[in-house]
Design a protein around this nucleic acid. Structure first.
Length: 112
DNA sequence: CCTATGACCGTGA
DNA sequence: CTCACGGCCATAG
């Protein structure tokens, strides 16, 4: 395991493709990890997408709207630290509506 | 090439 | 509905 040495916006290969896909998510909208994986041509690579986002550092998180990526059903996948609350706060700031603690995908989910 | 880890997902109990 | 299991993928040693 272990965190990637350098996950940068200009990263090569998979990470870069994940970041590019996440940047394409419009403001006020969200996509699921599985959906992002699908865009990359890896229908089963949702977990790898999570890995790429986890690798984001404070320096580069600014150029990647990671908060627009949620788990299946609109659930927040972050579990520890200030992450979960920060993600919710940022989404609500973009006008994203939460229902029963989950993002209303019918209203804010990006369409395949 | 091996195993271990994780911001996942689908399925079945 | 929730929970546990197994499978997937990329990356680190």
């Amino acid at each position: 395991m272990g965190a990637p040495r350098q996950a940068i916006p200009g990263a090569a290969g998979f990470f870069a493709r994940v970041y590019a896909a996440v940047r394409s998510i419009p403001r006020g909208h969200v996509a699921t990890y599985g959906q992002v994986a699908l865009w990359l041509g890896a229908p089963r690579g949702a977990r790898a997408v999570g890995w790429a986002l986890r690798a984001l550092r404070p320096e580069n998180e600014a150029c990647v709207p990671w908060h627009r990526v949620v788990g299946r059903g609109g659930r927040i996948s972050l579990r520890e630290g200030a992450g979960p609350r920060l993600q919710v706060r940022r989404l609500r700031a973009e006008g994203v509506r939460f229902v029963e603690g989950r993002v209303d995908l019918g209203r804010h989910g990006v369409r395949a």
